[in-house]
Design a protein around this nucleic acid. Sequence first.
RNA 1: GCUGAAGUGGUGGAAUUGGUAGACACGUUGGACUUAAAAUCCAAUGGACAUUUAGUCCGUGCGGGUUCAAGUCCCGCCUUCAGUACCA
Length: 1000
Amino acid sequence: MQPEKIPTMHYNFNEIEAKWQKYWAENQTFKAENNSEKPKYYVLDMFPYPSGAGLHVGHPLGYIASDIYARYKRHQGFNVLHPQGYDSFGLPAEQYAIQTGQHPAITTAENIKTYRRQLDQIGFSFDWSREVRTSDPSYYKWTQWIFIQLFNSWYNNDSDKAEAISELENIFASEGNKKVNAVCDENVEYFTAEDWSGFDAKKKQQILLQYRLTYLAETEVNWCPALGTVLANDEIVNGVSERGGHPVIRKKMTQWSMRISAYAERLLQGLDKIDWTDSLKESQRNWIGKSVGASVSFNVISSETKQSPSSGVRGIEVFTTRPDTIFGVSFMTLAPEHELVSQITTPEQKAEVEAYIEATAKRSERDRMADVKTITGAFTGAYAEHPFTKAPIPIWIGDYVLAGYGTGAVMSVPCGDQRDYDFAKHFNIPIPNIFEGVDISEEAFSDKEKTIIANSDFLNGLNYKKATKRAIYELEKIGQGKGKTNYRLRDAVFSRQRYWGEPFPVYYDENGMPQMIDEKFLPLELPEVDKYLPTETGEPPLGNAKKWYWLQYGDKAEIVSKEEFENSSPSGRLGGALELNTMPGWAGSSWYFNRYMDANNPNEFASKEALAYWQDVDLYIGGSEHATGHLLYSRFWQKFLFDKGLVPVDEYAKKLINQGMILGTSAFVYRVQLKNNKGVYFISSDFFKKVFPHSFEKLKNEENVGSINSFLRKEIGGERVEIVSMSRIHVDVSMVNSSNELDIQSLREWLAEFENAEFLLGEDDNFKVERDVEKMSKSKYNVVNPDDIVADYGADSLRLYEMFLGPLEQYKPWNTAGITGVHSFLKKLWKLYVDDNGLKVSDAKPSKDNLKTLHQTIKKVQSDIENFSFNTSVSTFMIAVNEFTKQGCTSKEILEPLLVLISPYAPHIAEELWRLLGHNTSISTAPFPEFDETHLVESTKNYPISFNGKMRFTMELPLDLSKDEIEKAVLEYEKTKDQLQGRTPKKVIVVPGKIVNIVG
RNA sequence: GCUGAAGUGGUGGAAUUGGUAGACACGUUGGACUUAAAAUCCAAUGGACAUUUAGUCCGUGCGGGUUCAAGUCCCGCCUUCAGUACCA
């Protein structure tokens, strides 16, 4: 038996980390108070989807950064809210349920457990008492509640905010809808107050739906009949589904939509007041896509008489940003899907047009977009009438015009728009020139600044600005157009044909109209189903629920089967079939940052007091892939909640930082498979590259197979071989060491087919793999699990190393080998405080050098944290510890503040040493050391002396010398004379405190 | 195509308003300790030439420019990554 060792004589990270994680949990060290004298600070991470694979080393990157910042703010005396939770509805759990029958709630709970264990062992300072899960009924109750608020609201353009739908009903009842300035569906019919009171309940509901902020609408979707589901553009490759390769068709479907377009302008304006990265704001601006111009309506001419207007055909509405070029219109182009196409196409052109429509329908939106070079289109045979000249204008269809943007129709001005120009050239349509002094024989002229209009009646001689104004004025005068601002931002489809999402609090009444269930009955919980697939009749998975009808009498409500509902007494009954769609992934994540402020409140989504105290997120960290999804939708919901007086601010995140991704370093081997089962050969990468220096892709070409053949024959021993296939395959990175050498035995054991493979070794008789940086993913066998890192080096090493890898926002590859650097730094740090005899910190007075090093460190680390430059502060710590070690520093006055500086980065070791220094409370609330400039004041400077800009040597000089004194001292210096070799300098540049440069 | 970000040793990266390019690490090489290994410590490490010392030249994707001085500023290009609309 060994004598009992006094603990903590050496750096036992496993023990220390477990101890402090337990301490933090038991003492609720990081619980944030909703009532505090301290100023508040809210640090938020984009919450994770708990996938079955668990965390890999890339995931915690942003969490470590935000944790450092949160801990730093606590040291500065802030009451810090730093919560975490789970975006736990989502497709992977549903896919898993479809395959295994396992309920997604069970898988999700298990995955969350794994995530929590992994997060805990990294030592984050989360306030877990505020954890939220979007799939928890106590959470989605409020998601449903917000949905109801949206349903009960409309957007009033006059007050520029959302208002109660009941107000709108009052307006309809008193004056009809003619004066209502609302964001609503296109083409709403006008009605009077009398009309309104005469409408039946159904008609009223239909009208109100055209105004509500969430509404039912027919939307075109990518429907895959074989899978019984709607697919995203991403999930379609070459017109068939990515999974299974089934055909996909465009289909209209009734779905819930969110009227985000009502907020387009405010979402755009709001960007100016938040401190988000420019690239992110730019993406949102592009996505919103504001353009200012005019809408113009063109009458369609009867194709027989060529006289206007053709009876029974509505005019064609177009949107243009260049109303000043209206006299340059020589044709019109409609999207092939445009509803007028079938009405106006002449019998002669019918066959051609239909063939063209059929051809474009086959092309996916992506295909149409990717192909810029091919110009296609068809003439409808119909003509429109120019609003001013009354000249007939041929109407074409072309797939460069998209149905979903603007009105799906374009007035084509070939002289001023390159795409119109190309189209006109291709189909021999005339290209009238309406610009003064511009040659358009080669290309269109689209420079607005230099535009002077010609050949355009009343617009002649005007510039772009004046002509635009005049054109709009004249259009308004004849009632055929008006100024208009157009946004690309489309209303967001909010229905998903899935099981694992929030149920809509909606049933359909006897008129088939949607009704919200009363708030007091929320949450409407997800029903149990036998199967998670669509029903045989093509309904969403909720169609499988045996009981999914709402039945309510007065204050009593229950969910019943269809039969039970039909057999119930109709008198006083409310209810009907419940909505079968569920909400999309972004529903729960659009407001969760508010819930954290008061996460366990059963009565409100958050109390007024909590909202008033916490206000908004001060620092939000997450990936840039959410730039136009989550980050736009959540801003929309926040603005809506703000309009309703439910939250105190209309932008919820003051500052946002994007973290980059940690990439994997994949390992590849070259494999050659021979015919007639002659075997599998693996070729060492260095060897392979020496013999075939060209790239592998080139090698795969036919002509090179021969050379590989003869190469192999030589290696194997003369026998003629034939290659079946040659490939470069991923191997698991765990089978490769830091020198890129493969453990051959592991590869043999990995897959049965490799068991008897032959290996052609390279230099030193080693088998080398090739390395390449790729996204970390299971399928690439390059995933590194943080659990392994924590077990081998500890959480503090992992935290430091992730930061040390490089700037937070940058993409960078992971390489486990480098972690030894930060790990030995922590050991050195430990040794600064503790040796074989225990604590060695003394009350000795700090030396000047000690103080200088400390205060340099404070200055640098503080500015680094505030600039989110965490990588450079890790180097600063290393320099500090190296210097203190060299200085033999043991002074408590120095080593104590050093611990506080390091504690946000490496909290466990800091807590342990803090305790050893005699403190009984957590280091997390110790004040951040104050920087004192006086310790850094220098009396001399080691000047670099340059000759013609090239540094030759340095020279130590007092800092209080004047320019002339410096020049004199330098010129008298022996080394200067050596450099000049008798030449007289033409010029001497002296920058005191910086540099001396001698020219000549 | 457009928008955004980025190109620096063998590798990750550093360099504050233009002022000593390569901090800090990894890796590599040599050495100490050890029976040996691990761990630890010390030294060297951008390239080329030279080597007794001293030193010289080249060098931050490429080509120009501004400046006493450019990784940093300006002009023109190339490459990589990410997002993305034929946006009228």
